[in-house]
Amino acid sequence: MAELTYRHAVARGIAQEMERDPTVVMIGEDVAAAGGVFKTTEGLQARFGPERVRDTPISEQAITGALMGAAMNGLRPIGELMFSDFLMVCWDIVANQIAKTRYMTGGQVSLPLVIRTANGGGTRFGGQHSQSLEAMVMAIPGLKVVAPANPRDVIGLMAAAVRDDDPVVVFEHKKLFAMKQDVPDGEIVDRLGVATVVIPGSDVTIAALAAMVPVAEEAARRLKESGVSAEVIDLRSLVPLDTQTLLGSVSRTGRLVTVEENPRLCGWGAEVASIVAEEILWDLDGPVVRITTPHIPLPSSAELEDLAIPSPERVVEAVLRLQ
């Protein structure tokens, strides 16, 4: 057991898989010699050599296209998109090519690849370097989506993503890179599609993802002081989605609040809410409440950005209104 930051967990997770499997390689802008602009891949090139850890030009279509072609021909490549916002400049390769090719070829083509990308706001970067795009990726059939909320899960979910035979987009949250946690030594491997009950409770279920998990946890602590027992679920994976854990919890508590960093329309919570409405409506004791960023691009000013992104205060307020 040793203390590890979220950013160092990224490199440890990748190293764990590269050590185990010589077909795992990694590319991206500034990931090799420089160790990544967020220092998430430091030391990997020195350890695994310039052929397996390699810098690319600023060419997101070339990066994602290369991942796809390499995966078709026997590698398990990992590629970094420096900011998730850059998904937009290679969305054709990701959504039209990588996502659809297995289905369109009748299962002939396997694409065991990982796209890692720094996601989310709270860093005052403004509207083109702060988006939470997990729901956009979730909406495309053929892509799996994970978003770890702590250093241990970064390792476990990275390993699960690399070992999966389908394309997986791993959203690393920029606001969490400095987060520290005691992480067990040795290999850590998770399964995709398993949510975690972070805090057990009985009055309300709060479902959250990535940087919204600590927000939900803080809200639960404050709610406890008000006598409300909140259960916090870290979804961890949007595709596949652990609906059993979620529906089991909501059936027990009778209330659901989603905490989403994405803008309002078509966030992951909308899908979760519709599943709850279709399948366990009669177990509910009140309306499903979605807490999201307003339907705006994220502003850069600290005061405005903090207003936009869901806070523990907003979660507490919403839950108390439900009681």
Binding site: V25, E51, R52, S59, Q61, A62, T64, G65, A66, L67, M68, G69, A70, A71, M72, N73, G74, L75, P77, D92, I93, N96, Q97, T101, M104, T105, Q108, V109
Partner: peptide, 30 residues
């Protein structure tokens, strides 16, 4: 597409398959 024959796909978005072909070639090198 006929993967066993080396026909690695017909791509219908203009230009998209050029980087994919490059990636397959990269894997051949590695």
């Amino acid at each position: 597409t006929d993967v066993p024959k080396g026909a690695m796909g017909s791509y219908a978005i203009v230009g998209a398959h050029l980087p994919i072909a490059a990636g397959a070639a990269w894997a051949a090198v590695v």
